[in-house]
Amino acid sequence: MKIINCPLNGPRNSSEFVHGGELRQMPDPNRCTDKAWADYVFYSDNQIGVMTEWWLHAPSGYWFIAERHTGSDEIMRTYDPSEIFTQRVEFTEKEECSPSEEVKA
């Protein structure tokens, strides 16, 4: 069994962890184009090399970030997301449609 070093719980069996996908900038869902949103949800780099990824330690519900080589499966580093996310991410409100548009709809 492979061991993964959880920043919160220390070394644990890999079966306790869930892969959460590549770390990437989330576009503002209320302002971005459909294409940009599709790119964010479906597309990925998926290359061979060291990737920065989200991982979840399922039993404790704790999300963290890992730098992992996708060819050798070696995990270089795991750390708390606060290293990258120093500020709260705020999204704009969904734009209300104007009354005239509503009538048409």
């Binding site: 996908g21 790119d39 479906f42 597309y43 990925s44 780099d45 998926n46 290359q47």
Partner: peptide, 14 residues
């Protein structure tokens, strides 16, 4: 994904 990237194409694949 690796070969497509050589042509500058990004794919919805994992």
């Amino acid at each position: 994904s690796v070969v497509a990237a050589m042509a500058g194409i990004r794919m919805p694949i994992t």
